[in-house]
Amino acid sequence: MDKTNLPNNPEADDIKPKQRRKRTKVVRNASATNKPRKRTRRIQPSGLRRKILLTSIETFGLGIAAFCAIIMLLGYSASRFSGTSFFVNLLPFATGVLGLILAVSLFLVGWWKLRKWLRLHSEFLAPALSLTLALLISWLVTHDQFTLAYGNFRTLVGGKEEAGRVTISHQVYAAYRRHDVTQLQKMVNRSQEYRQAIEDAARSFNMDVNLLHGIAATESSFIPRDSSDGGKGLFQITRVPEAVMAQARKRLGSEKIALENSRHNAFVAAATFKHYLAEMKGDLFLGLLAYNIGPANGGLRFIMQQYGAANFTTIQPYLQTLPRDYPIRVLSYSLAFRLWHKEGKLLAYEEGNNAIYIQRIGIPGLHTGL
Score class of each variant (00 low, 15 high):
R115E: 15
E162M: 15
S332T: 04
H179T: 06
G159L: 15
K18I: 08
L370R: 04
E199A: 14
K38V: 11
L366R: 00
V27I: 14
R329T: 05
L148S: 14
E199S: 13
I223W: 01
L114G: 15
R28L: 10
Q320K: 07
W111S: 05
R301F: 01
R329M: 03
E162Q: 15
N9R: 02
G253W: 12
R41N: 05
F87P: 00
Y194H: 15
F205E: 10
T147W: 01
R41G: 06
I363V: 08
L6T: 07
Q171S: 00
F81K: 02
T4A: 04
F222E: 03
L135K: 06
E350W: 00
G96I: 03
L131A: 04
I356M: 09
P92V: 09
A126W: 07
T313E: 06
I361V: 12
R251P: 01
Q185L: 13
Y173D: 03
L370C: 07
F267C: 09
R20G: 00
T95D: 02
L90S: 02
L129R: 03
L73T: 13
Y357L: 10
L108P: 02
V157W: 13
I356F: 04
V181R: 14
I137W: 12
F205H: 08
R301N: 02
V157T: 14
K186T: 12
P295E: 08
S220L: 09
D226T: 05
A309N: 04
T55M: 10
Y194P: 06
A248T: 11
L114R: 06
L118Q: 14
D229M: 08
V172A: 10
R178A: 07
S220A: 07
G362A: 05
D13Q: 10
E199P: 00
R301S: 11
I328H: 07
L259W: 01
V188K: 10
Y276D: 09
G298Y: 06
I43E: 08
L277D: 00
L133D: 01
T272K: 10
T321V: 10
A12E: 07
N9T: 01
R39C: 01
R42H: 12
